[in-house]
């Protein structure tokens, strides 16, 4: 019971934290932001690992396998594409330099 209450407390605090964190991000970065938070909910991968590690019949193992594969896709694809996107937001000074070199 205490465990559940502690989890609920964490849930509420994390919700407020989420509101606060996002409210201050400019429109300019909303797409990378959405993409990054999208990658962060790939944390579900951890749940997939836990459930796939437990013994069970083949069908349940297959369900767990799919969950881990989905989770890994979410994590790797999410962070990767966000990184690609943010690579284009280079500071103005660097860009000028680069053009001169080229």
């Amino acid at each position: 019971m205490t465990e559940l209450l502690a989890q609920l407390a964490v849930l509420i605090l994390a919700a407020f934290l989420g509101f606060e964190l996002i409210s201050r991000v400019p429109n300019l970065l909303h797409t990378p932001l959405m993409s990054a938070t999208n990658a962060i909910h790939g944390i579900i991968l951890v749940g997939g690992m836990i459930t796939l590690a437990a013994d069970g019949p083949l069908a349940i193992k297959a369900v767990g396998f799919l969950a881990v594969a989905f989770g890994a896709l979410n994590v790797v694809g999410g962070f990767w594409v966000t990184n690609r996107m943010l690579g284009m937001f280079r500071p103005p000074i660097k860009r000028v330099k680069k053009r001169r070199e080229g």
Binding site: V10, A14, A15, F16, L17, L21, I40, H41, I43, I44
Partner: peptide
């Protein structure tokens, strides 16, 4: 992590 993403 799930809640932060949910809230955001």
């Amino acid at each position: 992590a799930g809640t932060i993403v949910g809230a955001s």
